[in-house]
Write a protein that binds this DNA or RNA. Structure first.
Lengths: 345, 345
DNA sequence: CTGTTAGCGCCTTCAC
DNA sequence: GTGAAGGCGCTAACAG
């Protein structure tokens, strides 16, 4: 398409970008030598090197990555795969934090990041992304049990690391995660220690390990305290689903006095739903979230939540992938979790 | 790197992905014919087409984009360029909204999106991104006067559209923007209509048209109302800078009764700063923000702000770029702005 | 309709 | 140290 921008009927060819050939010609050497200079190959004579460098500067030459990746096994580029709807990925602070950390971590490296967002259902696009040979490896961020991502990755043998433990069935895959189960326990314990007895939870999706494990942790703490763990409703980590879950909880048990929402986003609308019903937080009902995202400080009252270090996960994932790409082996990494007490519980 | 993952010392070559050649062989046709099928070229016999399609399915073939882009003028891929620090891009809801809208808009098209985040100062990486021939066009999101992006774009003749009017000097570039000046007026007017008389503003960066224009609008409304427009402090649209600006404003004029913050993010911390100083919003000081981002509803009191339709801008930008890529001409687009009254002013 | 023939820009043996 | 030559996977004329 680049050559269609014409004034009238004629087609004006786009100014051709300088190629290695041009550089070589200008420097009076062969393509091979020019290539060596570009790739910092030591065995090039001083004068040859200098004239090539000069030519590069004058022409404003940049290697064409497409051509390079065609002939090199590695493409210096990784894909960040997020099997969630676009709107979601860019509005949920959890993803923002993860993405930001990944980009930041890679800021000083020449590695390019390709962000592949895959609305559930149409994996086609991601498939093409991954195949196509554009990328050396992948970081998968929000893995669901049946999204098929791991199958593709396995099939094309693309090194990958998962942020968030893949569900059973995908064992042996390298991943980094926070200790979600302990996190769930911490949340429940906070509520219990605060004297709450009728405690419910708006859990996360059960086809994701994070959702599943947080609920498990909550259950365990409840059991240890001898409390009933029947008050469970499910959301999908989004704000909307949090409010709806709270509503159902309220219908089933108007007298509940504590709620654990498995994500801050859900916690925010849990609080709004509560307050909208004339219920006071934390006096009537205490609320604990999960993630310690930015918004936790903004709610009224400020949200008591569980810190899951997104930056830590992203950083670890990047390092693991780089290790993998370098031919190394990696194990999974589990980061600790921590209660961040504020005023909502 | 893909072939280094070996068990011991030996190098196990990564399973080679199927190529067009393989497909052709399996289907018993020539590469050219296979290629035609892949590209939906009508002039292929029915039986040939079918056997090629079968081969594609059996082999799990996907075209290699790198190879394709090497030989085709267009790469079916656009770059979204954001000359801001990584942390910033992924934490500021304005960017999130824009990016989400762009990805969403392109969800059903085969166009790939390359997100190029360029920390100010090191444009190198972006340069390489843009050159390299990977992309057909670019959408530039947060253009500063001297970031040099437009120069590179012009030099390599890459079709581009700007979200946010480029500063003077870069005239003639296609862009989409909201009517920032009117927005600034709307904000000031709201304060004035509310009976405020000593009104300040935490303005945006003046090397960005959005920052500049919002301030201009505010000034104009103030002048029309016969009020002084000297109470101006500058931020860079981030939360931190908003609080600091408010602090300086308060030092200069402890008795001010209204503030216009040029972004919601700044407005949020303006409110926090105010409340932290024992000042009540909106009773003592009324606050108006800009953007109508998600968080505007979350503050206490909810933030009165100016709606700038990020989705609208992103959508228009994508369409303009696509038009450009198709060889068409485009003009700039200015979207209207609107006051969203809530409780903070 | 289909096959043959050239490259796209780059890197990498292999000779010199 | 340097050049010549071949090929990565694909598409685009050009012939039939």
């Amino acid at each position: 398409m680049r050559d269609v921008r014409a004034a009238g009927k004629e087609t004006v060819p786009a100014k051709r970008l300088p190629t290695l050939e041009d550089v070589a010609a200008r420097a009076g050497v062969s393509r091979a030598t020019a290539s060596r200079v570009v790739n910092a190959d030591p065995r090039v004579g001083r004068s040859a090197r200098e004239s090539v460098q000069a030519a590069i500067r004058q022409l404003g030459y940049r290697p064409n990555r497409a051509a390079r990746s065609l002939v090199r096994p590695d493409a210096d580029s990784i894909a960040v795969v997020v099997p969630e709807a676009e709107e979601r990925v860019f509005s949920d602070p959890f993803f923002s934090a993860i993405l930001g950390a990944i980009y930041t971590k890679l800021a000083d490296s020449p590695v390019q990041v390709l962000l592949a967002v895959a609305p559930p259902g149409k994996r086609d696009k991601i498939d093409r992304y991954l195949r196509g040979g554009y990328t050396d490896g992948a970081i998968v961020v929000s893995h669901h049990r049946d999204d098929g991502i791991s199958d593709v990755l396995r099939e094309i043998q693309l090194p990958a690391v998962y942020i968030g433990r893949p569900h059973a069935g995908d064992v042996g895959l390298p991943y980094v995660d926070v200790d979600n189960e302990t996190g769930g326990m911490l949340a429940a314990q906070r509520l219990i220690d605060g004297g709450r007895r009728r405690i419910g939870t708006v859990a996360g999706p059960q086809d994701m390990a994070s959702g599943f494990d947080r609920l498990t942790g909550w259950r365990r703490a409840m059991a240890q305290a001898g409390l009933a763990d029947d008050l469970v409703e499910y959301g999908d980590f989004t704000a909307a689903s949090g409010g709806e879950g709270m509503l159902r909880l309220l219908e089933r048990e108007p007298n509940l006095d504590g709620v654990f929402a498995a994500s801050d986003l859900m916690a925010v609308s849990v609080i709004q739903e509560l307050q909208g019903s004339g219920i006071t937080v934390p006096e009537d009902v205490a609320v604990v979230g999960f993630d310690d995202s930015q918004m936790a400080k903004l709610t009224r009252p400020p949200l008591t939540t569980v810190l899951s270090t997104t930056t830590g996960m992203a950083g670890a994932a990047v390092e693991m992938l780089l290790t993998l790409l370098g031919g190394g082996q990696v194990e999974h990494v589990i980061l600790p979790t921590e209660l961040v007490p504020r005023d909502s519980a």
